[in-house]
Amino acid sequence: MSLNKKLSMEISGNLFDYKLFDTLKAIDKTKSQRKAAKELCISHPVLNRRILKAEELLSEKLVIVSSTGTNLTEYALNILEEYETYENRLSDSTDSITVAGGPISCEFIRQLAQAYQMDNLKIIETDKQTAFDLANKGLIDILGFDDPVQAYIYDIEPTPLGRDNLVLLSHDEVELNSISDLNGLKFVEVEGSAQRLAWTTLANYDLDFDIVYVVNSYHEAIRLVEQNENLYTFINNSMAYTSQHTSNIISKETRHIISALNVKNNSFIESFLNIASHRAQKVTVNYGFEHL
Rank of each mutant, 00 (worst) to 15 (best):
S238P: 04
Q111F: 05
I211Q: 09
A113C: 05
G69H: 10
A131N: 06
I27H: 00
L143S: 13
S43C: 06
K186H: 13
N136K: 12
V99D: 03
D92N: 14
A194E: 00
N71W: 02
I27D: 00
T30G: 09
H291M: 11
L77C: 06
V149E: 15
T73M: 07
E270D: 06
T254R: 03
R163L: 14
N71I: 04
S259E: 06
S259L: 10
D147A: 11
D208R: 07
H44L: 15
Q227N: 10
L261M: 15
L47P: 01
S91R: 15
V214T: 12
R223T: 14
T23G: 08
I211N: 02
D210E: 15
S2I: 11
N230F: 08
L185A: 10
K25A: 06
I97C: 05
E253C: 07
A194P: 03
T94Y: 15
T98N: 15
L134P: 13
H219Y: 08
D181T: 03
S8Y: 06
P160H: 05
R50V: 01
T233W: 02
V149M: 09
F209M: 14
D141C: 04
A54W: 00
Q227P: 08
E81Y: 05
E74L: 02
D146E: 13
L231P: 00
L58M: 14
Q195H: 11
E55R: 00
R223N: 14
S259N: 13
R50M: 10
Y205H: 09
I64E: 10
M1P: 07
R49I: 10
T73S: 03
E270H: 06
Y241E: 11
S93V: 04
E74D: 11
G192Q: 15
N262I: 06
G162S: 11
T94F: 14
A194N: 11
I27G: 00
S93G: 08
L58V: 08
L72F: 06
Y75L: 02
L47K: 14
T242I: 13
Y287I: 12
N48C: 14
S91F: 07
L57S: 12
K128G: 06
G192E: 13
V174W: 10
L121V: 05
N165S: 05
E157Q: 14
V215Y: 01
K25D: 05
N78L: 02
L185Y: 02
